[in-house]
Amino acid sequence: MSIIKVKTKLDEYKHRAYSSDINELSGRTNRSDITFFVNNEISKRMDFKPDDVLVDIGCGDGTLLEIAENKGSSCIGILPSEEEVTRVRERFLTKPDLINIEQGLASKTDLPDEVADKVVCNGVFLLLDEEDVNLALKEISRITKPNSLVYIGELCFRDETEGKNYGDSILKWLMWVLLNQGTGEFLSRCKQTLRALFTTEQMLILPKNHYYCTPEEFISRAKSYGLNINEHFPHKSISSNNEVIVSASRQDYIFIKV
């Protein structure tokens, strides 16, 4: 049995690095289609060009890095744990000069000042605490060239745990999925649970808290670190039927470094 309760987000992604499916590093179990869709949307907005230096903080399985590299950009992916770095470096063994994977945090990348033409940090800020949000904004501003774009995505503007009263109970969680996400997602999660029970494939019971703030608050906070808002919009994903879903709780932001 491989059902594991993790206490922190860092521990969660250390465990995900050992999954047979590298897409687990995106946090989207069995949904690599969502990972590609989300990163393709980011690519359209950021318009990666030859000779751009992209820094992707929390680069997950490296999908965005591969998209940008195919457009001629040089890419640096930042991941917090040695386990994640090792796993994603293995993916890009044939492109070591074009895609570099380094260990670091949103709050401390250890990159030089003003190294990046484009910075992306998607699905990371909701994992931070209040203090680290400020440190991450300061760090992102530091590594970004003046007049360059910064994409911060999937930041919640309300508490997504509201109404999720299943705690650490797998049975209650499955019933919540059935009632709130439908039969298809319920059956998928049942299969995931059975694989964890009867194979070595792991399943994680995760921390329930996350960071969230209103767009007005986040835009004001970013501005104090030299990041002026260019545009913001609801985050988009896709259903299992390939239909576009507009998030009711998450916002994406594009800033310009002044």
Rank of each mutant, 00 (worst) to 15 (best):
Q192A: 13
L79A: 06
N39T: 01
L98Q: 12
K208H: 13
E185I: 15
Q192F: 13
Q251M: 12
P146I: 11
M46H: 03
G77I: 08
N100E: 15
C75M: 04
V244A: 03
V150I: 14
M175R: 14
V85H: 14
I245R: 07
E114S: 08
C59K: 03
L135N: 09
V244H: 09
Q192C: 12
F198S: 07
A248P: 15
A136V: 05
L65V: 02
G60V: 11
Y212D: 07
V38N: 05
T109H: 04
S81E: 01
E83T: 08
G60Q: 07
N100W: 03
G77C: 02
G123P: 12
P112M: 00
S107A: 14
S249M: 09
H210L: 10
L105M: 12
S2L: 02
L65K: 08
V124P: 09
G184H: 09
I34P: 03
Y225S: 11
E90C: 08
E41N: 13
V120P: 01
L111I: 02
I219W: 07
F48M: 03
G58P: 00
N134Y: 13
D168P: 03
A248W: 06
L135T: 06
E83M: 08
R45W: 11
I34A: 07
N122G: 09
L98F: 05
I245E: 01
T86L: 14
N180Y: 00
D113G: 04
P215H: 09
D110V: 05
K108H: 12
K145A: 02
T199Y: 13
I140F: 10
G184N: 14
I76N: 00
H15C: 09
S249I: 10
V133T: 12
S148H: 13
W173H: 14
I101R: 00
I76L: 01
S240Q: 00
A68W: 02
L135S: 05
R87Q: 05
N165R: 01
L178Y: 13
V53I: 14
G77N: 03
I67T: 05
K145M: 03
R250V: 02
S240M: 06
V6W: 06
C213L: 11
I229C: 11
C121Q: 03
G72V: 01
R250Q: 15
N180S: 12
G72Q: 06
E24W: 05
E185W: 06
C156M: 03
L54G: 02
L93P: 05
L111T: 01
R221C: 11
I254C: 04
A196I: 13
S73H: 03
L227M: 06
Q192V: 09
K257Y: 10
Y18I: 08
N241M: 03
G153R: 15
